[in-house]
Nucleic acid binder design. Structure first.
Length: 704
RNA sequence: GGGCGAUUAGCUCAGUUGGUUAGAGCGCACGCUUCACACGCGUGAGGUCACAGGUUCGAAUCCUGUAUCGCCCACCA
């Protein structure tokens, strides 16, 4: 027996050594596997952002994906798990801007090319860091196939998709209301904003003969249209198009009466003025009636000259002053202080989103969503847990067109060119006098094509064999951002679903079930846990009892518990190896051992079924219990007298059983606890290969 | 306003298609230096499965309703 078993299991000494052995074996690459022509099994890793450290959620996802991959590999499949890294456009630029801010610099005073270069270098060093962390988690992914979302071939193919979609009329350039973040100076898609309910004063102002209500007095300078419902009996004396002279913020103006059904008669006074440049509903009314549209607030959130004496003032400061002035003029009718209002904020910096009118590229979602819905409804793609499919459907049935233009440099340039107001989509310049759009893509426009990009769409060899992929495993909070878009792009480009199954894990919260955040200081770093308790312990803690789709409260105690389990397994191995050194593996099982063996295979079948059905939480728990309560507590104890007894036949049979049981429990545990199982396996007599490529127990007795 | 969940032991959670006295981890109590393991061993306390109805021979599990909590979506100024 190896002397290493005399000491408790040492993960920190073992793990890097084992990982190196795996990596050098080449078996992460399915082309090197004995079963290289077997049935393909493919997972594409959700590429972690190359802008920081992994969080516990990554550890959970990585663990589940690794379990799936190792299980498939041991069952003789041509298992491929493709890693990647995401440039994460806006998010990375935000991270980098914070660094610049700390250094007293600003992107707005930098040459865009220099900024791009700096961020590129920043992500390259972070990418290495991130890859090392994925290795530490034991991920058996094929690093030789790793992709970065800004690899030149990815950029080229993503741009091609844009050109194709433009040609097919699925992408259009339009002047529309967009979500503008005044801090980050870019537009955002609808799902990149957070709607927060806030209590805001609701002001009623006298507007000629009317009383209008608003929460945003600072937008009201240009309001020269007063809108009411055509059926509203209270205002039937006013006719559409009628002009009225009235006193307003900065003096007398001429207002025009507009009758439009968008007005809710029940709300407020049933009359409103409109600010089409800074409100979508107002913009739609203005378009219907062909009204003037004027910008009131600039891109930095300051008032434009139309505000008169308020020009240049930040809107946050201006509001109170404007109300004060209107009050002084006797135009403030009343204020409702308890009004609840939904406000959109930038999901990264929490700045209030300013709706602005801007020319942008939009993806027409309805036709794409229809096909994705069909795939979900027909079962071509299956969601785990089931109820995520309902959430998916609800969103897909109510899609809004997707703004894919970002006014940031960190991303893939949009291959569109303009000349005299005319736009064409093309990777190369169409010729003299054309200038390229300076905007970049929403990062999800490229990551939405990730399963295609990583497998070599349209003509790579992996695309032929490994697409569509088997499973997409990711966090449920990016169902809309990512999963939905991958389905849309893939069905559009290939008529195939990108994956047959979507497994969505929940979020990992702190021990009290509260969301982890830097500001709350409750963030648990996965690598701190692996250092302290070992990767296998962390993996088990993340998997046992964690049902898909449900958020998990991460308790350090739980990880500690599975460190103890790892040590238990270590000691079981020590006992068995110590007591079977003279085992004869050719003897027949005695009846008692035959029964134990049959019992074991009931477990093995059960666990196999659980893994096939994505019930990792049950499989892991069953293995834990068999190993500790059955094998250690009962079988090992009852074996002691047999091993020390006079009956040689019984002893030899039991020795064989223990050796076989150990070998097989190591196999079953390997997807969950790859390091310690491989390490023990390396001490098994007669072992011929790495545990990671050893066959999964199938029912007949197995041995090293 | 719309959608989706959750409610089981002190805490965090399982309970896969309804089927014997409802489980785990941690915590708690008591006892153990037993020759694999104190990162351990043994024994034990602890639950009207949110509430009210219903279906069934049988319900934590299926149906209806109620309450509470949570998440997501949404252009009522």
């Amino acid at each position: 027996m190896d002397a290493k078993f005399l000491k408790p299991y040492q993960p920190s000494e073992t793990e890097p050594r084992i990982y190196k052995e795996w990596e050098e074996s080449g078996y992460f690459n399915p082309d090197n596997l004995p079963q290289k022509n077997g049935e393909p099994f493919t997972i594409v890793m959700p590429p972690p952002n190359a802008n920081g450290n992994l969080h516990v959620g990554h550890a959970l996802g990585t663990t589940v994906q690794d379990i799936l991959t190792r299980f498939a590999r041991m069952r003789g499949k041509r298992a491929l798990w493709i890693p990647g890294a995401d440039h994460a456009g806006f998010e990375t630029q935000v991270v980098y801007e914070r660094i610049l801010e700390k250094e007293g610099r600003s992107r707005f005073s930098m040459d865009p090319k220099d900024l791009y270069k700096e961020i590129f270098e920043f992500t390259q060093s972070n990418k290495k860091n991130m890859e090392d962390q994925v290795r530490k988690l034991g991920a058996s992914c094929d690093w030789s196939r790793e992709k970065f979302t800004l690899d030149p071939d990815v950029v080229e193919r993503v741009q091609k998709t844009f050109v194709k979609m433009f040609g097919d009329g699925l992408i259009y350039r339009g002047q529309r209301t967009i979500n503008w973040c005044p801090k980050h100076q870019t537009s955002l898609s609808d799902i990149e904003t957070e709607s927060v309910e806030e209590t805001t004063p609701f002001y009623y102002f006298k507007y000629g003969p009317f009383t209008i209500g608003t929460v945003r007095p600072e937008t009201k300078f240009g309001d020269k249209y007063v809108v009411m419902h055509p059926e509203d009996p209270r205002y039937k004396e006013y006719v559409h198009g009628q002009q009225l002279d009235l006193e307003w913020i900065n003096g007398p103006i001429t207002a025009t009466v507009i009758k439009d059904e968008a007005v809710d008669m029940e709300f407020g006074t049933g009359v409103m003025t409109i600010t089409p440049w800074h409100s979508q509903i107002d913009f739609e009314i203005a378009k219907r009636h062909n009204l003037d549209i004027e910008q009131i607030i600039d891109w930095r959130g300051k008032l434009l000259p139309i505000a008169g004496e308020f020009e240049g003032m930040k809107i946050t400061d201006a509001r109170a002053k404007i109300v004060e002035k209107l009050n002084a003029k006797g135009l403030l009718a009343k204020t409702d202080e308890s009004y609840k209002n939904v406000v959109k904020r930038c999901y990264k910096c929490n700045t209030m989103i300013e709706p602005q009118i801007k020319d942008q590229w939009f993806v027409k979602m309805a036709p794409l969503a229809e096909r994705a819905l069909e795939a979900a409804n027909s079962g071509r793609v299956r969601f785990i847990p089931d109820h995520e499919a309902k959430i998916f459907r609800n969103w897909m049935e109510n899609t809004l067109d997707w703004n894919i233009s970002r006014q940031i440099i960190w991303g893939i340039p949009i291959p569109a060119w303009e000349k005299d107001g005319e736009w064409v989509a093309s990777a190369q310049s169409p010729g003299e006098g054309w200038t390229q759009d300076t905007d970049t893509f929403d990062t999800w426009f490229s990551s939405g094509q990730w399963p295609l990009m990583t497998t070599g769409y349209p003509d790579g060899t992996d695309f032929a064999t490994h697409f569509p992929t088997s499973v997409m495993e990711t966090a449920h909070d990016i169902l809309f951002f990512w999963v939905a878009r991958m389905l849309c792009f893939s069905l559009y480009l290939t008529n195939e679903v990108p994956f047959h199954t979507v497994y969505l894990h929940g979020l990992v919260n702190d021990a009290n079930g509260k969301k982890m955040s830097k500001s709350k200081g409750n963030v648990i770093a996965p690598l701190d846990l692996t250092d302290k308790y070992g990767t296998d312990a962390l993996r088990m803690a993340l998997v046992v009892g964690n049902t898909p789709g449900t958020d998990l409260a991460m308790r350090e105690d739980k990880v500690k518990g599975y460190k103890h389990f790892a040590n238990k397994l270590w000691n079981i191995s020590r006992f068995i190896l110590e007591n079977t050194e003279d085992a004869d593996m050719s003897v027949e099982f005695a009846d008692a051992d035959q029964a134990l063996h049959a019992e074991f295979f009931e477990l093995a079948e059960d666990v196999t079924k659980d893994l096939e059905e994505y019930r990792f939480y049950l499989a892991a728990e069953k293995l834990y219990h068999y190993t500790w309560n059955r094998l250690a507590d009962a079988i090992l104890e009852e074996s002691k007298p047999i091993l020390n007894g006079e009956n040689l036949d019984a002893k030899q049979s039991r020795q064989k059983f223990l050796r076989v049981a150990l070998a097989d429990i190591l196999k079953l545990l390997h997807p969950f606890m790859p390091f310690i199982t491989e390490e023990i396996w390396s001490s098994m007599p007669d072992r011929s290969n790495l545990l990671m490529i050893t066959s999964w127990p199938t029912g007949t007795h197995a041995s090293p």
